[in-house]
Deep mutational scan, measured.
Amino acid sequence: MKGKVVSYLAAKKYGFIQGDDGESYFLHFSELLDKKDEGKLVKGSMVHFDPTPTPKGLAAKAISLPLE
């Protein structure tokens, strides 16, 4: 699924993505496929991810940034 980063707290390594389906997904650095892309996780960045339901809500897994 595609989505847009709505927040990312680099110090805490987490944030949120708004998916194309309108839902909010929890984003964690550990799910970023290329850790070098962390600096690109800023508000408004477009990402691809696997939407995954968890006991705490919806989460983004296997997060990647589109090729530039």
Rank of each mutant, 00 (worst) to 15 (best):
63 I>C: 04
18 Q>F: 11
67 L>H: 13
68 E>V: 12
58 L>F: 09
57 G>M: 04
59 A>N: 06
43 K>P: 14
1 M>H: 06
60 A>K: 00
61 K>Y: 09
5 V>E: 02
53 P>T: 14
18 Q>C: 12
35 K>M: 08
17 I>V: 07
8 Y>F: 05
33 L>C: 10
21 D>G: 04
24 S>W: 13
52 T>M: 14
38 E>P: 03
57 G>H: 03
52 T>E: 12
36 K>R: 14
49 F>N: 00
47 V>T: 04
18 Q>W: 10
40 K>P: 02
33 L>E: 06
21 D>Y: 03
11 A>W: 12
8 Y>P: 00
3 G>A: 00
39 G>T: 13
47 V>G: 01
18 Q>V: 13
7 S>W: 15
41 L>H: 01
46 M>A: 12
58 L>R: 09
42 V>A: 09
12 K>N: 09
28 H>R: 07
30 S>T: 11
44 G>R: 03
20 D>C: 12
62 A>I: 05
37 D>F: 08
62 A>L: 09
59 A>R: 15
25 Y>Q: 00
7 S>D: 06
48 H>G: 07
53 P>F: 13
48 H>V: 14
55 P>L: 09
61 K>S: 10
10 A>F: 14
28 H>D: 06
64 S>T: 11
16 F>T: 06
56 K>N: 11
18 Q>I: 13
35 K>P: 15
22 G>C: 07
17 I>E: 00
13 K>S: 05
58 L>D: 04
63 I>G: 02
49 F>Q: 01
58 L>Y: 09
24 S>Q: 14
11 A>F: 10
42 V>R: 13
51 P>A: 10
13 K>V: 03
42 V>E: 09
42 V>N: 08
31 E>Y: 10
55 P>T: 10
20 D>W: 08
52 T>D: 09
31 E>G: 06
64 S>D: 05
7 S>C: 13
6 V>Y: 08
27 L>D: 00
32 L>D: 01
22 G>T: 04
41 L>E: 01
7 S>H: 11
59 A>H: 10
34 D>G: 03
40 K>W: 07
66 P>F: 15
35 K>F: 08
32 L>W: 02
29 F>N: 04
22 G>Y: 04
16 F>R: 06
39 G>R: 14
3 G>Y: 01
18 Q>E: 10
66 P>E: 14
16 F>S: 04
50 D>K: 15
38 E>I: 08
28 H>S: 12
34 D>M: 06
10 A>I: 12
50 D>V: 15
41 L>I: 07
37 D>G: 06
1 M>I: 10
48 H>M: 14
63 I>H: 01
32 L>P: 01
68 E>L: 11
5 V>S: 00
54 T>G: 10
30 S>N: 13
51 P>E: 02
44 G>E: 04
55 P>Q: 10
1 M>G: 08
59 A>G: 05
49 F>E: 00
35 K>E: 09
19 G>I: 02
67 L>N: 14
16 F>K: 05
64 S>G: 09
7 S>I: 14
61 K>A: 09
24 S>R: 14
60 A>M: 00
53 P>L: 15
52 T>F: 15
25 Y>K: 01
62 A>V: 06
41 L>V: 05
65 L>D: 02
36 K>N: 14
68 E>K: 09
32 L>R: 00
48 H>K: 12
56 K>D: 07
60 A>C: 03
61 K>G: 07
19 G>T: 04
46 M>W: 12
25 Y>M: 00
42 V>K: 13
10 A>S: 12
12 K>C: 10
3 G>N: 01
29 F>Y: 14
30 S>L: 09
66 P>M: 15
8 Y>C: 03
62 A>Y: 11
16 F>L: 06
33 L>Q: 08
8 Y>R: 00
45 S>G: 08
26 F>P: 01
6 V>M: 12
7 S>E: 08
57 G>P: 03
2 K>W: 12
47 V>A: 04
9 L>G: 08
39 G>Q: 12
30 S>C: 12
67 L>D: 13
52 T>P: 01
17 I>C: 02
1 M>W: 04
34 D>I: 07
51 P>M: 06
1 M>R: 06
14 Y>Q: 05
46 M>F: 11
